[in-house]
Simulated assay, not measured.
Amino acid sequence: MPETPLPDVAALSYEQARDELVQVVARLEAGGETLEASLVLWERGEALAARCQEWLDGARERLDAATSEGRAADGDEA
């Protein structure tokens, strides 16, 4: 039975990547996979974790930029 192809990690939203990562971790923790399947899951998990980190880093940059702009605007009024 062929498995459905997985979506490209780069196209996933943070929530999609996080949810799939949770599933991958659960499968790895449950055991019962072949060595090859475990390696594929591990690699997918690494890619998903990296994608989540990209989203979080981007969110931090946006927050930092917004905070900096807010401070600059406050300083202009003084």
Rank of each mutant, 00 (worst) to 15 (best):
M1S: 15
M1T: 09
P2V: 09
P2L: 10
P2E: 14
E3P: 07
T4R: 13
T4K: 13
T4A: 14
P5W: 06
P5C: 07
P5R: 09
P5H: 05
L6V: 11
L6G: 11
P7N: 08
V9D: 03
V9E: 03
V9L: 04
A10D: 12
A10M: 06
A11L: 13
A11G: 13
A11D: 13
L12Q: 02
S13D: 04
Y14C: 09
Y14T: 06
E15I: 02
E15G: 04
E15R: 05
Q16A: 12
A17F: 03
A17P: 02
A17G: 03
R18P: 00
R18V: 01
D19F: 01
D19E: 12
E20R: 13
L21Q: 07
V22R: 05
V22A: 07
Q23V: 01
Q23R: 11
V24W: 00
V25P: 00
V25W: 07
V25F: 10
A26W: 05
A26V: 09
L28Q: 04
L28D: 02
E29S: 14
E29F: 05
E29L: 14
E29T: 12
A30M: 09
A30E: 15
A30Q: 15
G31Q: 09
G31D: 10
G32L: 05
G32V: 05
E33M: 15
E33V: 08
E33R: 15
E33H: 11
T34W: 01
T34S: 15
L35K: 08
L35Y: 07
L35T: 08
L35A: 15
A37S: 14
A37D: 15
A37W: 02
S38R: 15
L39N: 10
L39G: 01
V40S: 03
V40C: 02
L41N: 12
L41G: 03
W42F: 12
W42S: 12
W42P: 01
E43Q: 12
E43V: 04
R44M: 06
R44F: 05
A47W: 01
A47E: 07
A47Y: 01
L48F: 05
L48P: 01
A49Q: 13
A49K: 14
A50D: 11
A50G: 06
R51I: 00
C52W: 01
Q53P: 00
